[in-house]
Amino acid sequence: MRAYKPKDDVQKKSYYTDRYWVAPMVPKSMVEDDAVFAADLAAIKAKFDVSDAYIQVEQMVVYIKPEDNVGVLKLMKEELGYTQLSEMSAIDWIAKQGQFEIFYQMLSMGKRKRIRVKCFIDQNQAIESVNPLFRSADWSEREMFDMFGVKVNNHPYMKRILMPDDWEGYPLLKTYPLQGDEFAAWYEVDRIYGKEARAIIGPEIRDSARVDRYDTERFSRLGFEVPMGAEPKAVDAEETPLAYQEEGGVFMIDKFEDDKTEIISDRKR
């Protein structure tokens, strides 16, 4: 029977994992260990629900409710001095728990501290835009929508940013294959030549490393190579020798003949 492959996560997987393997954890420390982070967290906790908070690799991670995102970022910007939103995006946890994780990477230049504000939203839940607070969220949220299909409420221009406007599917979802799906394979053929040309042209080969030995358009048949531009050889034609002796080249052995060989006893001979 063919091995079952889960459809909800088509990313590349390790072909072998020791069954006793337990992955270690990147150490987390308590927020109380850092006075600046502790004060920031206390200020956030005074007004909003915080489900979890810890320090990992010198940065504080704070989990909040998704509906508080604008409030927390406003508080951080205006009262705590986190003046820059460096980055924001989503992480796809749909296969595991049907949710997206949204993270906002904040930077305070005065305190020289970075905080990652995170929240979970359901698969079809929209999140409020933080664009009025940080203009950088304008493009980040568009990219998040483009890559994950996470909808953002009250965004001024909610359109795809990197993929074409008429693209179907969200490339960074775990369900989306690396080489693209059916739609991706026909996208350029349909747009440039029209759907009626599909039968003539065929789907786009999106695996750049693929070699089809029967595809004489792009590759010669192995063993039946012809010069560039020449007609491909007939199937019953004589095979091109793969190895041949060049004039003045290294002497090559076609066939190893046991009885004509000599065993050298003195290796320094």
Binding site: P24, M25, L107, R114
Partner: peptide
């Protein structure tokens, strides 16, 4: 197979 870093996350600028 590649290295297997510990479970966790990091943002480095």
């Amino acid at each position: 197979q590649g290295m297997r870093p510990p479970v966790g996350e990091v943002y480095i600028a």
